[in-house]
């Protein structure tokens, strides 16, 4: 199985490579359009800031390639948010527009700190990505912006209101949490994705 990890200088991809390695799977970190198009699965991790990520994606022409992909695709963290239409981050930034959500910032309060950082449980799970998992399962989140719940939502978490912990549109799957840092639960989700 050929797995491509989209390289757009989007932060800590080493942990994703190691997580795949623990599953006995080799992946290629690449921005090469042909390699990405040919891959059996595409992973799109990301951390950091949305506007600079979009600049890098445009510089590499990836903003045009990614929406045309047809194989199973998994966005992780910022890689999920970038699939939306628009984010408040960076004074307002246009995103890839693969999914119809707009990314907004959590309102920080003394009780609900921002970033939303730590282990939270998943609710309202739908679809093959979450096979074998339940609302008792916790995953690791670190983010200050979120996608609201919509018809594309396949898992929710609450902070303090429900938001999209995972989304899907056709072959495009994405999770707000870090599968690669979520212990055995995260590993199961990665395995489920690799079986798609």
């Amino acid at each position: 199985m050929e797995i491509a990890i989209v390289d757009y200088k989007g932060g800590n991809v080493q942990s994703v490579l190691f997580a795949l390695e623990r599953l006995g799977v080799q992946a290629t970190l690449t921005a090469d359009h042909d390699v990405i198009r040919r891959a059996d699965k595409v992973l799109f991790p990301g951390e950091g800031e949305a506007a600079s990520a979009m600049r890098e994606l445009r510089a590499q022409g990836l903003h045009e390639l990614l929406p045309t992909l047809t194989q199973p695709f998994l966005g992780i963290c910022l890689g999920m948010q970038l699939l939306g239409r628009h984010t408040q981050e960076g004074g307002g930034t246009k995103l890839l527009g693969i999914l119809p959500f707009d990314v907004v910032r959590f309102p920080a309060t003394p009780e609900y700190k921002v970033p939303h950082m730590g282990w939270n449980n998943l609710q309202a799970l739908r679809g093959p990505l979450f096979e074998g998992l339940s609302a008792e399962d916790y995953v690791y989140f670190v983010h200050s912006y979120y996608a609201p719940v919509g018809e594309y939502t396949i898992a929710e978490a609450t902070y303090p209101a429900p938001f999209s912990a995972a989304v899907q549109h056709e072959n495009f799957y994405a999770v707000q949490f870090h599968t690669e840092k979520s212990g055995p639960v995260g590993t199961r989700i990665l395995e489920n994705f690799l079986k798609l």
Binding site: Y140, H178, S182, G183, T187
Partner: peptide
């Protein structure tokens, strides 16, 4: 850091 990240699946 590399050795830990290779092994560990928590942050």
């Amino acid at each position: 850091v590399r050795d830990v990240a290779r092994e560990l699946d928590i942050p």
